[in-house]
């Protein structure tokens, strides 16, 4: 949405990003594999897991951040088109059925005859 509002290209769920001057090389997962994309100039990117190592802030950084000014910007314009009507809990899970480890093979029969998934 941000990309559309500011009129920039958008790449979703990137797993790798390399910047070389004005050109960005981005890797992204697609159906059954991945693809490498190239974008010139500004763009909006959403990152998937694995793109970067997390950096844990050190104590000095945390203390320094406390004294930084905090600018609160009020939201502007835009009407809301959706709203949550209510929340409900998912249906309760039935009891777990235990199978003796000695007869683990029985599971396959149960999955076929009772659960009907294989």
């Amino acid at each position: 949405m941000i990309a559309e509002l500011v009129g920039l290209p958008y790449v979703a769920m990137a797993t790798k990003l390399d910047l070389d001057g004005d050109t960005a090389t981005i890797e992204r997962d697609i159906q059954g594999g991945s693809e490498v994309l190239e974008v010139n100039g500004g763009f909006v990117l959403s990152a998937a897991k694995g793109m970067a190592e997390q950096r844990i802030p050190n104590m000095r950084g945390i203390m320094a951040a406390r004294s930084k000014p905090l600018n609160v910007i009020p939201p502007s314009g835009g009407e809301s088109h959706t709203s949550v009507v209510n929340y409900e809990l998912p249906p309760a899970k039935a009891e777990c059925k235990y199978i003796d480890a000695e007869n683990a093979g029985e599971l396959i029969a149960l999955l076929h005859s009772e659960a009907k998934v294989i």
Binding site: P9, I30, E35, V39
Partner: peptide, 9 residues
């Protein structure tokens, strides 16, 4: 706005 360089399936 984007060029595909390589597809690895």
């Amino acid at each position: 706005s984007v060029t595909v360089k390589e597809v690895k399936v």
